[in-house]
Structures are given as structure tokens and as C-alpha cells.
Simulated assay, not measured.
Amino acid sequence: MDEHERELLPSLRMEGCGPLHSAAGSGNVAVCKYLVEQLGFDVDSDADNHGSGITPLACAAAHGQVITVRYFLDKGANPNKEKSSGRTTPLHEAAEAGHDEIARLLLSKGASVDASSSYGTPLVAAGVRGKFSVMKILLENHADPNKVSWQFGTPLTSTLYGAPERMSKSTCLKCVKLLVEAGADVNCTNPETPLAIATYKGLTRCVEYLLEVSKNANVLVNHDKSSDKHSKAQLKSQGAKAVEGKNYSSASKFYTEAIKLDPADAVLYSNRSLCRLKCGEAHDALLDANACINLRPEWHKGYYRKGAALMLLAEYKEAPDAFLAGLKQDPGNKEMQEAFWEAVEEMRKEPSEPSLHEVD
């Protein structure tokens, strides 16, 4: 080819797909290297020149081409570039196809484990097809087992919807157990309860399992007054386990039930404030922080939670005061000191109010 013909190569389409995408999907690394390193092809180029967002990396991930995926990532390909249709990412492609090694590789390079699409997160994409090993990898990387998608609901309900058409009943049970053990809500109603879905899908063993775990979950909430103290400890422990697994939504629910049993426990409000902060519920987190301070004004943790909530609300003029109040209770707290100076720095960036003589 002459120079002009080579310049036209990136726009060439064969059956709607460019040369680099074809090479990526077939795993031809030598051709990929030539096109990228010799002819200057863009590693994040679209397949059809119409802004579809289907990158060579996504093609390689969908077809299980591990070496090609690694090559594109090493060349700086964006692991989170979305398709314009459906907004799926390369991780969605790997999860849907069950390519666990590629999923690990993408996550190690910064792929968003909870990237949303019109179909749901990568965990939903894997769950609805019973890709157990990929689901396990995603959960190990702190995927949210309760994030709702508009089409399939939660990962748990999507997994049940997938059987028996896309997976065997035994695989479905295995995936359901994995999700429940990771903190999936067995009583969710998005769009129906897992038990209802399992029943009309004829998943007998899943029905039996869900009935058992639902019964155990209800024991924590439907308690006798004589065992309130014991139940509160159970709920608090369950909340702590959920926090450890970064399942802050479920943890918040456990702490809410515990607060119903003992509304004078400042620690519960502090813990729930943390969970609400992690879920982006800044106003509710602030309310819990204030409740904690009212119950235990001498405890520094309530002031720290209040300052963090104010920072999330961009109330930079008030946040330093909250952290300073906490430092008065615990002067040597380094975390509080760092948070205070960070809040002060943000406050300094805020535009100052005009003085009276500046107003016309």
C-alpha cells in the first residue's frame, strides 16, 4: 500500500467491523501489534465509526482472547469505555461469556466492578447466565450483591430468571448460595421476591434453600422482647460482617433493626452513619451523626461522622468546626487532624461572601 492507502485503513470496515477489531476478536496479536505500533491505530477506536463504543478490548474480552486483552491494556486501552447501546463495558462482555481470567485481568487494571448498564452490572451479566466462577471473582472484588438493574432486578433475582433456560437448576442453586452468602437480600422485591421467582420457575431446591435462609433472616427481626439484648448483639454482628464485605446497604438495614431495639445506643447511630456515607446518603448520615453526638457528646466518633457528612454535602464552612469539636475530645487523633486540615483547605477554596460596600 502507498501512504494514502495506509491512512484509509482505520476507516475500512469488513462486515461492519474494522481491521483491529477483527484481529482482536480472533486473537491475532501479531496483526494487532502491526496495526497499533506500525500504522498508528487507536486502541480505543469504535468498531463502526459511529461512536458505538465497541472497542478492540471489548471484542477481545467477549471472545476470550486473554493475550490480546493483556496487550491492549498494556497499550493503555480504557477498561471502562462503554458501548453507546446498553452502556456495557469490556467487563460486562467477559462476565457474560464466563471468561474468568479476563475478568481478573480487567479488574486488576481498574475496571469498575459495579459499572451500570441498561441490563445491570457485570455481576448481573454473569448471574443471569450462571457463570459461577466469574461471579465469585466479582464478589471477591466487592461487587454489590444488591445493586438493582431495571431489567432483571438484583443479581439474585437475575440469576433465578436465568434458570433453567441459560443454566442448569444445580448451577442456579450454586450461584444463589454464593450470592446469599455474600449478603444478597433474600426478601427484596425487585421486581418480585426471589422466592416467588424460584417457585414459578419450578426451581424446587432453590425454593427450599430460600425458605430456610428467609426463616433464619426473619429470626433476627421477629424477636421476642425477652431476647432483645441478644438480638441486638446479633444484628450488630451481622451489620459488622456486612460492612467488612463492603455491603453497606445491607449493613444499614441491620443497624436500623438494632436501633429499634435500643434507640439510645450511640454506636449504632455512628455505624449506620458510616454506611449511609458509603451509600452516598449524606443527609441521613448527618442525622445519624447528630444523634450519636446527642447521646455521647464526649465521644469523638460522632463529630468525625458529622464532619464527613458535611464534606459530602459540600458544606465546607461547617465541616472544620465538626472535626475541631472531635479533636477537643481526642486531641491526638491523626485521622481527625487530617480530616480537619482537608476541610480547611476546601473551605479556603470557597468564594468569600461579598462585603456590604461591594453590593450595589
Rank of each mutant, 00 (worst) to 15 (best):
D2L: 03
E3P: 02
E3D: 00
E5V: 03
P10T: 06
P10W: 09
L12C: 05
E15I: 05
E15N: 11
G16W: 11
C17M: 13
P19L: 12
L20C: 09
L20M: 07
H21L: 05
A30P: 02
C32Q: 05
K33R: 13
K33H: 11
K33Q: 14
L35H: 07
E37Q: 09
G40F: 10
F41H: 00
D44F: 07
D46T: 14
A47M: 08
N49V: 07
N49I: 03
P56H: 03
C59Y: 02
H63K: 15
V66Y: 08
T68F: 01
F72C: 10
L73F: 07
D74V: 03
D74K: 10
K75C: 14
N78D: 15
N80Q: 08
K81P: 03
K83N: 09
S84L: 04
T88L: 03
A97V: 06
G98K: 04
E101N: 07
E101V: 12
I102V: 11
A103N: 03
R104Y: 06
S116M: 11
S117P: 09
Y119F: 15
T121W: 09
V124Y: 06
R129Q: 08
F132E: 02
S133P: 11
V134A: 04
V134G: 01
M135T: 01
I137L: 08
I137R: 05
E140V: 01
N141W: 03
H142Q: 03
H142D: 08
H142T: 02
A143L: 01
V148R: 07
F152C: 10
T154Q: 08
S158R: 04
L160A: 12
G162I: 02
M167E: 01
M167Q: 07
M167P: 06
K169C: 01
T171W: 14
T171I: 14
C175E: 04
K177C: 03
L178P: 01
A184W: 06
A184P: 10
D185I: 14
V186Y: 06
K201D: 08
Y209R: 10
L210C: 09
N216H: 13
A217Y: 06
N222W: 13
L235T: 13
Q238L: 04
Q238I: 03
A242L: 02
A242W: 01
V243D: 01
E244G: 15
K246I: 07
A251G: 11
K253S: 15
F254E: 01
E257M: 01
D262P: 00
Y269M: 09
S270N: 14
S270H: 11
R272L: 00
R272Y: 01
S273K: 11
R276I: 10
L277M: 13
K278N: 12
C279S: 06
E281G: 05
H283I: 15
D284M: 14
D288G: 10
D288M: 05
N290H: 08
C292Q: 05
E298I: 06
E298N: 13
Y304R: 15
A308G: 06
L310R: 09
L310N: 09
L312P: 02
A314M: 13
E315F: 08
K317C: 10
G326K: 05
L327A: 08
D330V: 00
G332K: 04
N333T: 05
E338G: 09
W341I: 12
V344D: 03
E345F: 04
E346L: 14
K349E: 12
P351S: 06
P351Q: 10
P351D: 13
P351Y: 00
E358K: 07
V359M: 11
D360E: 12
D360V: 11
